[in-house]
Design a protein around this nucleic acid. Structure first.
Lengths: 220, 220
DNA sequence: TTATTAATTTAGGTTTGTCTAAATATATTT
DNA sequence: AAATATATTTAGACAAACCTAAATTAATAA
């Protein structure tokens, strides 16, 4: 019922990887956790023995439903702390993540439920990601403009702000349409432009004006 | 500049032990940390190599001034979190310690300074212990009645509520006078009586009425 | 002051989580 | 389908932080 910081980081990372691809891979996880593939294999065996992942050697892995429950509780802690840091302690948007990364491993359920209450049961963290409730229920997606989504989250284009041909021409040229999967890689303070990546292509920049017209939904 | 959870626990425990006796011992520390003496020796060597303690084999140890600085910063974190838990999250007096024990190891200075600000720079935690400021300055003692001090802290009797002979007779009988070192071991909800221990003796009970007349000062 | 007891340290293991290098399985090309 | 490339796993080490049992030092009592 209680997991080490390291185990928790693995579980959380697998959860996020699974949002993209249904099944996570050793190398993929190694990249995310900045660890060597051999270390991933070691830990996966352990998580398997604890019945937190389905895992067949060489075949990738997926969280079990127990594993998902654990992941959601870690994500709940993380996002509540992010909300606290931003809302109460007035941290800037981009400073909250690293601190929350530490705080999330303090696992007292009472602490987290009381924090939730204190914060007024917020539904989204400062990045717009939904916060699981104490039962692990989470709002699957939300729809926001491309200019508002967090970095490095896969999002799917689901709506366009208007139907002017000028807009559609530009989108066509950039190869973005409804259903396109993309990720925001970087934001540039100078002109609010953002760098996006679609499919396997090299990331490219789009203007703030365009970003505000593109609406996406994205997972947790 | 950054220490493991384990190192921090050692440093903090040594600091507290030193409040009582000027120099801490292997067995004393082992008792506090619920570890074996051999483990203490191992860690002490490490802390010595990091210049956090003065340590001669078989001769006990004391924090260096650097070690004290580190200890005060850990205590600052601990007490600020205790205050937060009690004041903001409405935890009961006796529930805050264990959770703060985990939170204190999240070492972002910015987090702690912003938390301090958010809380309005409180000077004492819910147990009445003083909270070090961001420079590590701490109010050395405070004077309160015996009925208010935390459990298991050595306190020194420094004042008596009144001079009635009935009171003094009782105190004399119990062997408590100005300068007596004592510790509260337990509180009984039924009649608010408390169990105190002085010197090497077996702990004994005193009434709430008496406790309220005895004023003590105690360290951090 | 020597003998006994108590405290402390040393020596050698264990577990957790990491690593490198080598081996093996799977996927991709030709 | 074989050859090559890539992904994954295994084998064997290592550091941190703990442990037990044995040895050593210091403190206490006879």
């Amino acid at each position: 019922m209680n997991f080490s910081t390291s185990e928790e980081n693995y579980i959380k990372a697998i959860f996020h990887l699974q949002q993209e691809e249904d099944t996570a891979t050793t190398n993929g996880l190694a990249a995310v956790l900045k660890a060597r593939p051999a270390s991933i294999t070691d830990m996966l065996k352990k998580l398997k023995s604890k019945k937190l992942v389905h895992y067949q050697p060489y075949r990738g892995f997926r969280l079990t439903s127990e594993g998902k429950k654990v992941a959601l509780s870690i994500i709940r802690r993380h996002r509540l702390w992010e909300y606290f840091l931003s809302e109460k302690l007035k941290f800037a948007w981009d400073e909250v993540h690293d601190v929350a990364e530490d705080l999330e491993h303090v696992s007292s359920k009472k602490l987290i439920d009381k924090l939730d209450e204190f914060l007024g049961y917020p539904r989204f963290d400062p990045h717009g990601d939904p916060i699981p409730d104490s039962q692990g229920r989470i709002e699957k997606h939300q729809q926001v403009s491309l200019s508002e989504i967090p970095l490095n989250k896969t999002a799917i284009v689901c709506h366009v702000g208007d139907q002017t041909s000028a807009l559609l021409e530009l989108m066509k040229h950039k190869n973005i349409g409804i259903g396109t999967k993309l990720e925001v890689k970087k934001r540039f303070a100078f002109d609010q432009s953002i760098e996006v990546k679609i499919r396997q292509q090299i990331p490219f920049n789009i203007s703030e004006l365009l970003a505000k017209k593109i609406f996406v939904k994205y997972g947790v």
